[in-house]
């Protein structure tokens, strides 16, 4: 217990917030933690959201998406990172030296983003979409005016899960080269300074909770009126009812 208290106190020492040759600096580490997380999420989003919407809209390719998502979840992050660090060259548009990290963390974020977007569209009542088609909407209009607004809770839920996953996992980047809040953990372990390790863990957990809270608020605001967060129970007697539970898009991450 006292270790946890000491960890909290460590965070509030002003000297630990400034960067010097002998200290990574919480402020700097936090900024880099967010930058690396944000870039990874961006890369993942650019790939996974359009793909997920396509799958959800057309119903094509979902088998492939599920299988590849599951494989992506099984890839050991540390192992992949260690090999990409040595052999992956810099990629255009990404900051030099960060490519391997961004690739690895983006890979983690893709399954929940993909699943969130196609499940978001699939959860919509088919009759609604048929009605939209019947009144002469184009496929693009159906996607942007009907499917995305109705599926937005799950889509944001996917973004929420993947953000949390990235924010928690970016912690391991300092085991190799980058500076993030995990730096205090990696350094503390090497220096046998467990107060620093605990302080790092508290910082990561606090950041994750704050981000999760922000997403919870966003989710509440983006769901259109008329689509309640917990829709009235369908007449489901089978597991189809999960769609309802899933609709709030609550997050679970794994693999940090």
């Amino acid at each position: 217990m006292s270790l946890i208290v000491q960890g909290f106190l460590w965070i509030f020492v002003p000297a630990h917030w400034t960067t010097s040759a002998t200290s990574a600096g919480i402020g700097n580490a936090l900024a880099q933690h967010l930058a690396l997380s944000g870039l990874s999420l961006l890369v993942a989003g650019v790939i996974a959201l359009p793909l997920g919407l396509y799958i959800g809209h057309t119903g094509k390719g979902r088998g492939v998406a599920i299988v590849s998502s599951n494989i992506a979840r099984a890839i050991p992050t540390l192992g992949l990172l260690s090999i990409l660090l040595l052999y992956l060259p810099d990629v255009p548009f990404l900051p030099s030296g960060y490519t391997p990290d961004i690739v690895v963390f983006a890979l983690l974020a893709i399954p929940p983003l993909l699943a969130g977007s196609y499940a978001g569209l699939e959860a919509i009542d088919r009759q609604t979409i048929d009605a939209a088609r019947a009144i002469g909407m184009t496929e693009w209009q159906i996607l942007t005016k009907v499917e995305i607004p109705l599926g937005i809770a799950l889509i944001i839920g996917g973004i929420r899960s993947s953000s949390l996953q990235i924010v928690a996992t970016v912690t391991i980047a300092p085991l190799f080269t980058q500076i993030t809040l995990g730096t205090f953990i990696a350094d503390g372990l090497a220096q046998a300074d467990y107060v620093k390790v605990v302080a790092g863990a508290i910082l990561v957990a606090a950041l994750a909770l704050i981000i999760d809270g922000l997403f919870a608020i966003v989710q509440r605001f983006v769901v259109p009126r008329g689509v309640s967060r917990r829709p009235t129970k369908e007449k489901s007697t089978t597991a189809r009812g999960t769609a309802l539970a899933a609709k709030t898009g609550t997050p679970i991450q794994e693999g940090n």
Binding site: L86, T177, A190
Partner: peptide, 23 residues
């Protein structure tokens, strides 16, 4: 005039790479 970058591989491949690419 030192800025410090910790790389936890004991002067291994990641350290070498950072040196060679002038990080």
């Amino acid at each position: 005039n030192i800025k410090f970058k910790s790389i936890s591989d004991g002067g291994g491949p990641a350290t070498l790479k950072a040196l060679l690419d002038n990080t």
